[in-house]
Structure formats: C-alpha cells, structure tokens
Nucleic acid binder design. Sequence first.
RNA 1: GGGCGCGUAGCUCAGCGGGAGAGCACUGCGUUGACAUCGCAGGGGUCACUGGUUCAAUCCCAGUCGCGCCCACCA
Length: 910
Amino acid sequence: MLDKTYQPASIEGPIYRLWEKAKAFAAGRANRKDARPYAIVIPPPNVTGSLHMGHALNNTLQDALVRFERMRGRDVLWQPGMDHAGIATQMVVERQLLERQEPDRRALGREAFVDRVWKWKEESGGLIINQLKRLGASCDWERERFTMDEGLSRAVRKVFVDLYRAGLIYKDKRLVNWDPKLLTAISDLEVEQVEVKGHLWHLRYPLEGRDFDPEDASTYIVVATTRPETMLGDTAVAVHPDDERYKALVGRNVILPLVGRRIPIVADDYSDPEKGSGAVKITPAHDFNDFDVGKRHALPQIGILNAEAKLLLDGNSDFIQGVEPSAQLARTIQELNGLDRFAARKAIVAQLEEQGLVEKIEPYVHTVPHGDRSGIVIEPFLTDQWYVNARELAKPAIEAVKRGRTVFVPKSWENTYFHWMQNIQPWCISRQLWWGHQIPAWYGPDGQIFVAEEEAEASAQAKAHYGEPTDLTRDADVLDTWFSSALWPFSTLGWPDETAELKRYYPTAVLVTGFDIIFFWVARMMMMGLHVMDEVPFRDVYIHALVRDEKGQKMSKSKGNVIDPLELIEAYGADALRFTLAAMAAQGRDIKLSPLRVEGYRNFATKLWNAARFAEMNGCVPVQGFDPSTASETVNRWIAGESERALAKVTEALEAFRFNEAAGAIYAFIWHVFCDWYLELTKPILTAGDKEAAAETRAMTAFVLDRALTLLHPFMPFVTEELWAKLAAEGEGRESLLILAEWPRHLGLENADADAEIGWVIRLVSEVRSVRSEMNVPAGARVPLVISGASEDTVARAKRHEDTILRLARIETMSFGKAPSGAVQIVLDEATLALPLAGVIDVAAESKRLKREIDKIRAEIEQLGAKLANEKFVSRAPEHVVEEQRERKAEVEAIAARLAQALKRLEATL
RNA sequence: GGGCGCGUAGCUCAGCGGGAGAGCACUGCGUUGACAUCGCAGGGGUCACUGGUUCAAUCCCAGUCGCGCCCACCA
C-alpha cells in the first residue's frame, strides 16, 4: 500500500541505486546491438565545480532526451566526464596551500605542485558527479573520462603535433592579453570589457627644436591618453594625415617628457581627429592598436612594464636609447622604478604637472579589459606564445553549419556563430601555468623547436638536426583548457585509437549547452571535429537559456548570487526541480527561477502519487494481453484517445526540443484529464457498475496510468519508476524497470463519438456546478435536474451516464420533460437543463444572470454577423474559416434563442 | 559602433494571423473513502506605444519608448 504522501527523499536514493545495479545507463546493452546509436557528450563540468542551476538545467534536458531515446529503443550513450579546468583548479589548490600555511607553488616546485593538485583531485575533486546522480542523470558512469586522463592527454598531444606540422599551430611574438595577477596569457574570450569611470589626460609633448613654453601652444603638441603611465614606452605621436591642425608637424619630432627621448610625429589613419586632441601617443609594446601603428611605421617596441605590470626601468636600456644620461633622468628612474602601474600613473602625472606638461584632465568613461578569472585589468604584453590559426580551421566549421550538417536549435544562434567565426582571431593556446597539458615542444640550446608527441621522438629529431645527441628543454607552458575540451566528442571515445565506440557513436546526436560557451566550446569542437575526424561532432546543437537569479543577473560564484539546486532537491525532490526546469525551458528565453514553482510541481508529483494510490486501492493492475482498442465503455474509449493525444504531443515536442511543451502536455493530461475527469467519471463504474465494465475500467486505468508514467519518466524519473514498480508485480507482461520500458506506440485509439459524448458529460457537469456555485446552492445539497428539449441521442447519453452525472453534479434525481417554473436554466446544445430551486433561488438574481449571458452572446452574434456581412471577408478568407464562422454564428444564435426562452419562463413565475 | 532578445493577468511566464492561456497569488464554497502538497466555482488583461500590410493583427513589417544580453581596439 502506498503511503498517503509522496516522500521524494526516501525513494530517490534507492531508485538510483536500482538503476545502477541493473546497469540501465550502460551504452551498448546486449539487446540493443542492432539499435540505432544515440550519443550525447556531457559538457564536462570543472573538477572544482559543484552543481549550480546551470548544470541542473543543462543535465535535466540531456537526461530527458537520453531517457526518451532510450525508451524509444535507441542504443544510448550519455558520455560523462570532467574538465581539469587549468586556471580554476590551480587557483583552488594554491589558495588551499595559503590557507594551510604550507609552502606555496614556487617553493614546492612544478612536479610536487602538480602531484599536489592530483592529490586534491582524488580527495576533493569531482563532487559534482555525485550531485549529478542526485539529479537523476543517467550517464554511463563506467565510461567517465577526465580531460587529463592518459588517453585524452595522448589525444591532445597528437592533435597539437598534427596541427603544428600542418602549420596550423605556430609560435609568435606579439601582444597578448596578459593577466598580471595570474601571470599568464589568456585568450580574447577570457577577457571581459568592463565600463570604468576614469580620466582622460591631455599631455603636452614639447616639439624638438623649440623651447617649451606652457604659454605658447606652438612649442608643443597635446596628446590625450587614458594611460599616462605607459608614456615612457612611447615611440611616436600619431596624427591623422588629413588633419589640417597637425599637417605641418608630420615628420618632425617631439621630445618625450621625463625621458628626453626623441620620437617622431607620424601620420596615420588610426588617429581620429574627433577624439581627444586629435593627436595620440603611440606605445607599441603596451597597446593593441599602437602595436599595429608601430608595425606600419617601423617603430621600435619599448616595453616598460614587467609581468606583474610594474614599471621596469632600472637596467632597461630600451626606453633611454639615445638619451644623454643625466642626474635628472637618474632620479626619475629611481623614483618610478618598480612602481605598480596604477601607482606609476599617479607619480608620472605628478611629475608632468610639476613641469607644466598637463594641459587638462577630463573625467572619462571607457571600457577596460579585465581578466574573467582574476578580475583585474588585463595588460597587453609582448611575449612569445603559441597560437592556433583559427581562421583556417573556421572555414569548414562555417561551411558545415551553412550546409546544415550541424543545426542549431534555436536556429537564430547560427548568426552568432557565423559572426564570430567569420571574424575569428588567432587563438592563443599557451598558458603560463603548471596544471594542464604541458606543451609537447622541446628547445635545443640555440632555441630550435622540436615538436613531438613524446620526448624520445623530439630527441631523435634533435639528433638528426644537430648531428649528435643534444640536451633539450621542454616548453614550460601548458595548453588552454579549452584545447582539450575541443577534442571531447572524440577523445572520450578513444581517439586516436580506432575504437568500436568511436565508430559507433561519432558523430554524436546532439550537444546540449548554454549560449555562453558557444565560442569557448561549441565553435572549437566544430573546428577540431572537422579537422581531426573530417566530420561534425554533433548533428544538432541545442542552446538553452541561462538560469538567472531573481534580478535577471547571470549567476556566478564571484557574484555570490548562486541558488543551490541541491537545497531545492532536498526540499522538494529532484523530480520537482527537473520538471520545473524543463517546464520553463522555452526556447530563447532565460529562466528566472522561483522556488514557488518548484513547490507547485512537487505538488504535481504528489497528485500523481495519489492517483496511483487510488488505482492501487481499486485493484487497477496492468492486465496482460489487455487490448485497449476493444474497450466498450465510452469513458474508457475516450481516455484511451486522450492518452494517444498526450503521447503525440509529448513525443513531437521532445523531438523538436520543445521541453516546455512536452512538460506542459503531460502535466495537463495527468492532472486535468486523467485525475480531474477520468478517475471521477469512472468511480460509479468501479463501485456500482457491472462486473465486466468494472474490470475493463480497472484494466484501462492501469493501462493509461502506465502510459502516463512512461510519458512523464524523462522529466520525473524517480517517482515514475517507484510507481511503476508498485503498480504491478514484477515480470507481469511488462519491463520490470520503467527506465528500460518501451515508449508507448500510437495505436489509433482516438474515437470521435466517445470524445463527443464524454465532452458533453463534462460540459453538463461543469455548467451545473458553475450555476450552483453562482446561485449559492449549498455544496452538500442535492437538487433535481430536469432536461427538456433534448434529442433522443441526448436522452440516451444522459441515461447512460446518469450515475456519473448524479454524483459529479450533486443531482438528486434526473428526469426529462418540460422545464418547471422557478428553475435555474442552462442551455446545453439543443437541450435546456433546469434545476428547480423555487424558494431557494433569488429569481431576480437568476434573471439578471440570464440577461447578462444573453447580452454577451448577442454581442458575439453581432460581431460574427458583421464579419459575415463583409463581402471582402467572405470572398477572400479561406473557405473553411468562413464556414467555421457561419457555423459558430448559427450555434450561438440557437443558444441565444434558448436563453431568451429560459428568461421568459423564469419571468412568467414572477 | 554592430548584433540579438524581451515588454501578454498582481507575480513568474507560455502562446500566436481567424473565439486571450498556464502556474502561483487572490475571492467564495468545501461535498464524494486517491489526494487539504486537495476539490469545485470565480474575479482579474486597450497582449508597451504609434503607424503600416491584411478580409482579419497580441501574432507579420516599420518606427518609438523601456529593459537585458553578446560582439567590437577606439586614445
């Protein structure tokens, strides 16, 4: 016997273990060798991660798809795993060392530190896997992978070497986004533009050959900058070639303040006459635009900051090239050397002000690049880094989507994808970290590069190159974490080995992910998949919304606005959370999650639970060999048809990734069709009907309930599995585990006659209830019902369902004949229902009610009349629409007539 | 500067060229041996605004206003 209330916490754990024990999640099950494969690779969560709402949504949707397809008989592989998350993980362990006052990373040394991270991973990493299990994720856990597994690392090395040999990976010295806190390069994508209130400094650079006079503007040129601290590395001043103000100065020199170095004034289109003073200082080593300008004019690149973004002046001969040493200069160097960039800004401005070189300072709002991990201002920094020629790899990836080999859902994301891919920049893949895949490149004493999968191979190359064995040094850098993630769809399947899994499950069916990582991950998987496998990694990409906090802000750890899904699971059950997320996952709209909604869907689970309890109490068990198409009771034929419609809706919606529609359809079917009507309509049959009808109804109830459990299972796997087990003894003609049961087949059970008849009963009951309520008839009172003007068919219908009508509408007796006077009257199709309530009802109020209804319906008649009188409508609208309106008008007119009659009868009693 | 999305009931959101919907909240009534985590009934909307297309617009188009996001090197 089922408990009275559904307790998610007590069943979810045992049910999950049951599935695991049955190996229900395993791909390649023996009985599915001939089935079509269906694979999804999980977006690997960070090893440092814990389950947040985004994961909950992402994995709920994947699990719904996977369970749906598994039930449809596909050989399903949901490939799980985790990402080593280079920077994030290294930061976690470094923080831990600091907290425990242990030797820091540098003191430990690389090898010991990396060991330490592995140890951390074994002890504390991967919490999220258990959290995914609590959510009900049916991943094939035995196939779990980690991006730094030996196999996946081998894939990384091989791809690196292949791309290097193909010229698609190269080393280059150029400006990168440098994080002065983490001391590593990062890619463009890891930079966030943040709007900052700053200042625009207008500085006077004295012209060469003129005695600087603050009062005489012809002795200097004004440059405007937001970064005065980089001025020590200036190597030119640029003006626009068409700028009349400065034409005469082009080709002349200025004397760089504080330093005394001579730098040219050059003409370059980059300079915008509208911005600042129209003249801009050029610092090629510390600004991306200036770098390009510098290249065009063959300017030197003078770096004046070190990796930590502190002024590096002492011993830096570049920035004083060609300058006469002086005591003044020495003092300046001494004062400024080693200052952090922001301290340096103040100090330099102060010195310039002293010398009358600051024309003005304006408040200025501009965007400044920040590191997404460190949160500090990124510094353009001139270093050697490894790059991927993304432009080349993007070409086939763009083409594949254009040709529909991979399809985005919703389709509009393809524009975003194209736009980024068409403007893609070289991808900086080297990171100055220790945790990650160390770059498989070795250097000879002269800097010669040897790239190979293994050190031995590099040594062999070196021997061939130098003619003798030579000591090599390995590149210290590791690869961007996303480099290994990009290989995930095939590296997890065993590539570069030609495994059976790779052959069977690649390309995967669909990738489910959030739009925030289209560039980071989706695009790069497309590029790598096409280059390495010569085939797209997935057929569909379903892009879901972000789960945001109540303010609509993106949830993130750093903002501290994360809602913990595990708390919701504890309070309401995983099923309720899953259903909420699915029901709210409408395409193209973000989810603002409300716990109230989760509670509502927990109630839904309880509702289902109690329906099952009712079935159990009435002995509604699945009957082996029951054929629903042979049902003879109208109500049973009706519910069979309703279940077919629900099946079709859920199936079609899931096929089209319309999770909210699928969830809505099964919700409405279970609650508002099955529970609200079917179970109520059949109670008289179960208690008082003849034996055959009762038996048929029990069998149908069990059949429909089984179907409902099946359709709901992708969204609410736990409660459905539990009920599935409870509703029938094991092995009774159906799969013992719902997770492995077959998705219902459409059997053509729809029946228009049954729909019409039950529809009529439902309308009758609803109308009577409505009027009773409106007339304040006491809920417990049973009243007589007189049906007048009814056709033979209607009379027969009414008689067939008399028990039900009496029960559901609280009717004392049902009779046929003339409507009595002093009765409340309801027009239902051709018949009029009268509830003789003389003495109970307020005749005046009833008259008012009828008049209101007549008014409403007359307004509609008028509207329809006008429409049908409109020649243009009749001639241009499709015929079926016109016909529909005509029919409706006739219907409504008939009702109006009967209402008028009813009113007349009522008033006769006055 | 470019691109995208969103303004529908008090709240959170579906829908969408031909009769305005759901959940929650609210109001009234609680009666039936599944369920008060419930039942029945009900109130509540110029579908942001303005114009256009159409026989017909909440839906399509254009513009306006408001909100949000993404991309971009702008001193």
